[in-house]
Design a protein around this nucleic acid. Structure first.
Lengths: 339, 339
DNA sequence: TCGGTTTAGTAAATCGATTTAGTTGAATAA
DNA sequence: TTATTCAACTAAATCGATTTACTAAACCGA
């Protein structure tokens, strides 16, 4: 037996009929506008008790259709495999919920095509705003897609363009500090494993790294710089390259993301992690399990809560019509496990 | 300057006017129903070229309103802090995307109140179906909320009730196997740290644990059994209790979730992880970093991909009207790092 | 040239809310 | 007594699509 597969929704019209009033009256009452439209107390009570009895909940979808706001925001992230992005997503979801919004998510795997498709899908579904952790370094494509001019807030990565608002971590400072730490540990041959250079989190971290090398008069060897994607596989391959192709053996490695570090670990495991004994490590994005590893990883912990809240706050402002919003750069926290 | 904050949407009506045809015709054409409604090739081409030129994309929201299907499904999970749930979420998101659906997510933190609210919110927004990682052990509340009888698929945890469909890991078998492994390692005093007993993942894992103890004639000491929540804090407290209140010192600990294990680690850290030297560990939910820890953790890795795909497949079937769906139990994978 | 079929469309209802611009009857003021 | 105000509502338009039930013209055979 098919247990009642399609019960017709009870609508405002049904309530109106039951109460013997018009839809208008019901609408006023359920929206708390009864007083200003001078609906009598009796009518209010009659309608309310019927609403109660029938467990009537207005169809948010229909309401959204009429009001042109879906109370939904879209979030496109690279990949929640990364703990940092999971946490970011969670903060935004909580923030959204607190403000009565729902969150639609899509992960792009940092694929431009997937990102575009996700954005298009969100726009055609009339989200009220978008939060993007974008692979694109400028907003041209987004502007093209966004014919309705729905607010977009960029998160985690800087995207350039007119009237663009970004919420990012101070990646330059974070990388500088971690590299500085290496310097104070007397490392001289510091390797850098980065992500796609067009992504600001990769390039800014590299800039910070370079600046610190220069500042502390440390040698810069192109051999020790590898760029790939922000993936575990890329981290594995980069490490392999570092140890097989480089002329100099590094005494420290800086990975620009958690995933890259995990790839590094994977490679090191093939040698029973021995190679890590003599190498100092620093990475972006902390992970709670780092505390329990046999080698000490210094890291930059991004303030996901503040980032998420800030981004959502900007979204709200943008929805309210304020489109001249300043970029926000959030200071990271340093987790120094070995100094 | 406010950069054009509200561009009015271009609608099917505008296209119709531009092409000098009716809305009906445009609708037929953009939905590929031109032939069966005998629209002439010229008209088709004229309309299509205008659609192209104007970059017209039909408003999915309006369409959903009319068709009573939003092509959206709602997912309620406990907490994406848990890597396992992140991966599950991601699989479902990809699966949804491939089928042209969007995914709305909410995390409940295993709070019944939050879960109910999330479900209510999703239902009032007319999602086409729900996937729930629920805190509730039966579906009474869900039935009450679900007056429109929208399909619900339960994931990860068993929920009882009439016409309920669940996709779960074989938790009993997983726990049995891990405990069995302890037995073969000659452990005798095996502790169990579980989550909320009303949640099937906790109780089933406990059942499997108990059954293995019995099967291998291992002593069962209530002192070594602690139940709490599936959180890091609870894991910490449970471990503390285990080491301070128990009369017997455990030689093995089984944690029923990744978060509980992380809590255990946190407690152990206060003693420089020394206490872990003599204790064997097994846990549900693997984590890639376990490979690099100085102590070997055996684990059960749930097949998030198969679980997510199966759940989404059932969702599709349910949407198509098939409500008599069988529960699916998915075999886990064992990751034995120490045998 | 008439009746019937085919071709190529269109008008209008509908989904479930919100909102504008009324209407009605009673009470009050002049 | 008549005009005005006010309290208490309501009819109908609207949002952007889909879909049902038409219509008008062309064509075709007898």
């Amino acid at each position: 037996m098919n247990p009642n597969p399609k019960s017709p929704t009870i609508s405002i019209k049904d309530i109106a009929r039951m109460a013997g009033v018009s839809k208008t009256t019901v609408s006023f009452i359920i929206n708390g506008k009864a007083k200003e439209h001078q609906i009598s107390t009796e009518t209010i009570q009659k309608v309310q008790s019927i609403v109660e009895q029938m467990q009537f909940v207005p169809n948010e979808f229909a309401r959204g259709f009429r009001l042109k706001q879906t109370k939904t925001i879209g979030l496109v992230v690279g990949d929640v495999y990364n703990h940092f992005l999971s946490l970011l997503e969670k903060t935004i979801e909580i923030e959204a919920r607190n403000q009565g919004f729902n969150l639609v998510i899509a992960s792009s795997d940092d694929d431009p095509e997937l990102e575009s498709r996700a954005i298009q899908s969100f726009l055609s579904r009339s989200v009220d705003a978008l939060i993007l952790v974008s692979v694109y370094s400028d907003n041209k494509i987004h502007q093209q897609l966004n014919t309705r001019n729905i607010p977009i807030i960029y998160l985690d990565r800087v995207v350039t363009g007119r009237h663009v608002t970004c919420v990012t971590t101070d990646n330059y400072a974070g990388a500088f500090k971690l590299t500085e730490q290496f310097a104070s540990q007397s490392c001289r041959h510091i390797a850098f494993i980065g992500g796609r250079p067009s992504i600001s989190t990769s390039s800014e971290r590299f800039r910070g790294f370079q600046a610190a090398l220069e500042h502390y008069h440390l040698p810069y060897s192109p051999d020790l710089i590898v760029h790939g994607e922000f993936t575990v596989e890329a981290g594995y391959l980069a490490t392999k390259q570092l140890f097989s192709a480089a002329h100099i053996y590094p005494d420290a490695i800086f990975t620009a993301s958690y995933t890259l570090l995990e790839g590094l670990f994977q490679y090191a495991r093939e040698f029973n992690l021995n190679i890590l004994q003599r190498i100092k490590l620093a990475t972006f994005d902390d992970h709670p399990l780092f505390d329990f590893l046999p080698f000490k990883v210094n890291s930059v912990q991004q303030n996901t809560e503040l980032m998420g809240k800030t981004a959502f706050d900007l979204v709200l402002q943008a929805i309210r019509g304020n489109r001249n919003l300043e970029n926000v750069v959030i200071p990271p926290k340093f987790i120094i496990r070995q100094s």
